[in-house]
Amino acid sequence: MSSTTLLPEEAPLPSHARTKSSQTKRYGFFPGCVAKESCKELFNSTMLLADKLGIELIELTAASCCGASVLNDVNRDVARVLNARTYAQAEALGLDDVITICSTCTGHMRAANKELVESEERMTQANAILGKFGARYNGSVTVRHLLWLLIDDIGLDRLSSMVVRPLNGLKVAPFYGCHIIRPESVNGWESARQPHSLEDLITAIGGQPVDYAGKTRCCGFHVQLEKDGIAPAMVGQNMRMAKDNGAEAVITPCPLCHLALDGYQADSAARWGRTDLPTFHLPQLVALALGVPAEKLGLNKHIIDPRDAMVARELIS
């Protein structure tokens, strides 16, 4: 059940069980479709970051799409069973952690996993289908976002001690969006009302977090095709707030948010004024701070060029 009152920190959030992967530093890795299609720069910078961190991300290459929010609209079971198939692949490789780099994947894969683990009936249904091709899911997998791995397994202190190119006070607006925090009953890793993981991370790598009310609001990505103008309006509303509070750039844990924020600010200018905030994928900024050369991060793939903002803070010349 989701929280019912406005208590910001009402129930103690479940502390994260230590996975085997977090000890062996070998993690199952689910990049998701968008990091393999239009946001390849996210995939590449994640791999470069993993290298710097000394962790191994083992891609589940035969995994399917998580179904996002859309497949649920068509059938109540299919996304759950597809994800059970993915978890079975992780188990077969001896991995009990599946790391994602997309908020939407995180939310929906965790929801599917919760349903499987909490309902014998659903687990049986999934395994009856997986059994047809000799697969089986035993319920041992935890789905976590790379952001949580950075904070839980690497640790902010260690991370900041690894920084070789601090962000020099770059004013970064965290954009949580939705599915990495809501619903709290599915994610629950931090308060969905008052999250602060991205702020903590920005601080740890030498930036200044910018607070604004839009940080936990939706970007409209999932309805961009349903009606023209909706997603740009939602993007503009949020980016206006960030810009008015002094942001020079934005960081997001989700490639779908990234597509919307990076892609639609040009369209939202008519209603919300120009914002032109360069938007970074989470691993891009962290990798940059840990010394990965900027040229390798695919920043030239961004529609809003981040170079001016970076030059102003002497992050690149």
Binding site: S2, C178, R182, P183, E184, R217, C218, F221, E226, M234
Partner: peptide, 10 residues
Amino acid sequence: WLCAHCYACS
């Protein structure tokens, strides 16, 4: 169909 699946109404 315009619901953006954002779960704010949760």
